[in-house]
């Protein structure tokens, strides 16, 4: 099938992402402020429970926790929205041809927008804390790029899997819940006995959260091996995602 088409696919990605973002928050009084309030409320609850009730002694625990929550939220919302990305756009997919990956890209971008808004809140608190911003903090961008790659890769895999197995969303929900506790979000990695730490690091999200804190809060660089492992698994999952998506997405219009 050859089709000469001058479609501007970038515009379509941005339009779909923007529409999703807009729809998500319109109609509520606070509008997109909700996207800021959600992690803040999460933060308050976790902070009260772990810092005040359980007296977790971690320096800079507030910023530490906030950054972890924001990265976690992007991961969980990004992969969840990616899982439904083909299915939720079935009305378009069944009627118009365009490369199907567009809807997954649009979904990953619209959640990315929420992450950026959240980071603004984080840096607002960072400035309030009076801490100095280390030069390594700029490398957070690299950390987020790898995070985006990870989320996109998993989204691609989940979106085509969902075409065949309509209960994968339930499985993913359980997986996300356990991943929340298996990633160093509320507790620092140092709380884990040394011999288990490596197992926790198998989860690339552990590294991504840990390194973001290292870079921004401690002014340190991650170990080269760790960074290579995290980037490698993320890129690996993205490639697997491209492969599976390329293999199964062309029948999406028939299976939706």
């Amino acid at each position: 099938m050859t089709t000469k088409n001058q479609h501007n696919y970038m515009e379509l990605i941005l339009r779909l992402a923007w529409t999703d973002f807009k729809l998500r928050y319109q109609g509520s009084v606070l509008g997109f402020l909700w996207s800021l309030l959600k992690p803040l409320l999460q933060f308050v609850v976790l902070y009260v429970v772990f810092s005040i009730f359980m007296r977790m002694a971690v320096p800079n625990y507030q910023l530490y926790l906030l950054l972890g929550i924001m990265i976690w939220n992007y991961f969980s919302e990004g992969t969840n929205s990616g899982l439904y990305s083909l299915a939720s756009k079935s009305n378009i997919i069944k009627k118009v041809y365009f490369p199907r990956i567009i809807v997954v890209l649009a979904s990953s971008l619209h959640t990315l927008l929420t992450l950026f808004l959240n980071l603004l809140v984080f840096f607002f608190f960072f400035i309030l804390s009076g801490k100095a911003f280390p030069w390594t903090g700029f490398l957070l961008v690299v950390d987020l790029v790898v995070l985006y790659i990870l989320v996109l890769g998993i989204s691609l895999i989940l979106s085509v899997t969902f075409l065949k197995f309509r209960d994968i969303n339930q499985i993913w929900e359980v997986f996300l819940m356990s991943a929340f506790y298996l990633s160093p979000i509320i507790y620092p990695l140092e709380f884990i006995p040394e011999q288990y730490r490596l197992i926790l690091f198998l989860n690339p999200l552990t590294g991504l959260i840990q390194y973001a804190r290292l870079l921004v809060l401690e002014g340190q660089l991650p170990s080269l091996g760790g960074a290579a492992y995290v980037s490698g698994t993320s890129v690996g999952l993205l490639l697997l995602g491209f492969f599976l998506f390329g293999k199964f997405s062309h029948k999406a219009a028939e299976e939706l």
Binding site: M1, T2, N5, K94, A253
Partner: peptide, 15 residues
């Protein structure tokens, strides 16, 4: 282009 064909060929010229 919404459904892929099993066999045969479709060639279109134009948007």
């Amino acid at each position: 282009g919404i459904y892929p064909v099993d066999s045969g060929k479709v060639v279109t010229n134009g948007k």
